[in-house]
Design a protein around this nucleic acid. Structure first.
Lengths: 190, 190
DNA sequence: GTCATAGGATGATGTATATCATCCTATGGA
DNA sequence: TCCATAGGATGATATACATCATCCTATGAC
């Protein structure tokens, strides 16, 4: 055997990390195989030693992106006083830096339309990620019954996703107004 | 002269209409020159008799898409009782058909991330469209002062854009729950 | 009817890309 | 030290696309 056994896994993770960043920053088409490999310190040729297809890379990189944001939000929620967890999520999600650095943020404001247009097989995987996302956030949502919490999740995340996606089109000044409007609106509701 | 003078303008409009539909249905990359021309009943070669570049077509087709949705929403608002106009806008925007047929809907849930990633010159034009969009909707928004109306516009449209973008990823049943959650949430607020 | 011309068609060029066959080489076990 | 091999590199192939030079033809002015 040539390398330490963990070597391949590390390289694999590195490629996924790089793709995860690129995909959020530049869209599904922004993560070309050769570019991702070059920025991972490799050449394009070795790619298919790690992934069966480019779609596989996209699925893995989306998984990584969702895991990252869910981790950030869950941590914020767990550090908040009980009952205030959802407010901590809102404040964290709508921070200006979240908006300014899409490569480190939630994949949804960066990619939702492209995910919606993906072919059914891939979309099913994205739906799976969304279900995990929702299930992880649900306990922190306002409302008594499970159905109320789900409605709150949909409403709150719709607003946050839309505000982020919209504000990223706009120049800095207007951008801040959109984020603040959405945040104040959510915090005043429920 | 070969054709009636209006002929060229009609063809031009037809190409823009077709591109406008395609772009909303399949993204900025979905509107390839040859495809759009074929579906307009032409061949790809004549394209540059109508547009200086593909970017020009994109800008025109976005303008068309924004004009369409603004018209639909303004008409709904004007037919509502005064003070209820914003509710008519919410109900119209979040209709299931709006979500199911992106090619006839608002460009924002379909394209916001791609617009945000466009080069500065194009993005500036999209920002111009957004300003017109906002200015047209502002009179219908809830709130007394202009600043309140703008905040309401940002909050309401963020929620609607996010809900539409999110629900388009999801299967029909969940999709309906997202739309309903967002709609009820908005109608209960303000 | 003739013909100049603008709208439209054909086809070429160059670039970007996914995919994969093949080659190369560093590694660790013998 | 030597070698089998898996990880990685090179390069080929095929496709999709934007762009544009050039050609063709229907039209309406004469």
């Amino acid at each position: 055997m040539r390398y330490r056994p963990e070597h391949k896994a590390e390289i694999h993770r590195g490629i996924v990390k790089e793709a995860s960043r690129r995909v959020r920053a530049e869209g599904l088409y922004g993560a070309a195989v050769s570019t991702v490999m070059r920025d991972s310190g490799l050449t394009h040729g070795g790619f298919y030693k790690h992934f069966a297809s480019k779609d596989d890379l996209l699925v893995e990189s989306l998984h990584d992106g969702f895991a990252e944001i869910v981790g950030i939000l869950a941590r914020a929620a767990e550090q908040a006083r009980p009952g205030q967890a959802w407010k901590a999520i809102v404040k964290t999600y709508l921070r200006p830096e979240m908006c300014d650095y899409p490569e480190r943020g939630c994949p949804l404001p960066a990619l939702a339309p492209e995910l919606a247009r993906a072919d059914p097989a891939m979309r099913a995987k994205f739906v799976g990620e969304l279900v995990k996302y929702r299930d992880r956030m649900l306990p922190f949502m306002p409302g008594r019954r499970a159905a109320d919490k789900e409605r709150a999740f949909f409403a709150i995340f719709s607003t946050m996703i839309g505000a982020t996606a919209l504000s990223r089109i706009l120049p800095a000044q207007t951008r801040a107004r959109v984020l603040a409007s959405a945040r104040d609106f959510l915090l005043r509701s429920f």
